[in-house]
């Protein structure tokens, strides 16, 4: 039977445990990235929703006051 020297054995054992820990870390960071993406998409949806809710008012306002600027009235109507 092949016998690794004690120092060799220590290296093998530690590399095995290290590999395991690294893998868990990588997996968790992948999961984290996935959740971040979901979070971002959710943010986008909320923004869209706000914009959509704001739009009808914005159209009316645009009809009343054409020169009143683009952003400011929109913000007010969404609140």
């Amino acid at each position: 039977m092949f016998d690794a020297t004690p120092s060799d054995a220590v290296g093998y054992v530690f590399s095995a445990y290290l590999f395991f820990l690294l893998m868990v870390l990588v997996y968790i960071s992948i999961l984290g990235a996935k959740f971040q993406r979901i979070n971002r998409e959710l943010g986008e949806l909320i923004e869209e929703l706000e914009a959509e809710n704001a739009e009808p008012d914005a159209v009316v306002e645009a009809g009343v006051a054409v020169d009143s600027g683009s952003n400011a009235p929109r913000k007010e109507s969404s609140v």
């Binding site: 039977m1 092949f2 690794a4 060799d8 054995a9 093998y12 054992v13 590399s15 095995a16 590999f19 395991f20 893998m23 997996y27």
Partner: peptide, 21 residues
């Protein structure tokens, strides 16, 4: 399957430490 990768790698390391291959 993800765990399986770890099983195979740790198994290979164990084999190397025990039998030299």
């Amino acid at each position: 399957v993800t765990f399986g990768v770890a099983v195979l790698v740790t198994g290979a390391i164990w084999a190397k430490a025990s039998w030299g291959y």
